[in-house]
Write a protein that binds this DNA or RNA. Structure first.
Length: 107
DNA sequence: GTATTGACTTCAT
DNA sequence: AATGAAGCCAATA
């Protein structure tokens, strides 16, 4: 782990923390807002490295089509669904209606 | 150095 | 709606 990635992870972390309750964002959206356009995959990596230390709302980050990024059988999938529902976000068959719930950030 | 890996995205079936 | 290929690009190995 080098200092470069630490800064990027911090930027990503900051954006995820700003996702309001009851809304969701896509990995690509978070990347763009963090000043890292085109690095959607890096967002997932950053979150996976942080998930053990801090409690950030990682579960508000979904794929661009609203689908949860984990297999249905995984424990993480089930936790994510539960947390989203707790936020008041409707999840149907592992996906969220982005037109309804996607975070419209104002920059 | 090159190769592989992803909590991704988009386009085409 | 579901599936797959191709594109993507930094982080790891």
């Amino acid at each position: 782990m080098n200092t470069n990635s630490i800064d990027k992870y911090k930027a990503i972390n900051g954006v995820v923390l700003r996702i309001p309750v009851g809304t969701v964002a896509s990995y690509g959206q978070v990347a763009a807002l963090a000043g890292l356009p085109g690095r959607a995959r890096l967002v997932g990596k950053a979150l996976s490295s942080r998930i053990n230390e801090m409690d950030i709302p990682w579960y508000r980050v979904l794929r661009s089509d609203g689908k949860i990024a984990f297999a249905e059988s995984s424990i993480q999938y089930q936790r994510q669904v539960e947390q989203l529902k707790h936020d008041g976000v409707v999840v149907i068959k592992g996906k969220v209606n982005m037109r309804t719930y996607q975070w419209e950030s104002v920059l």
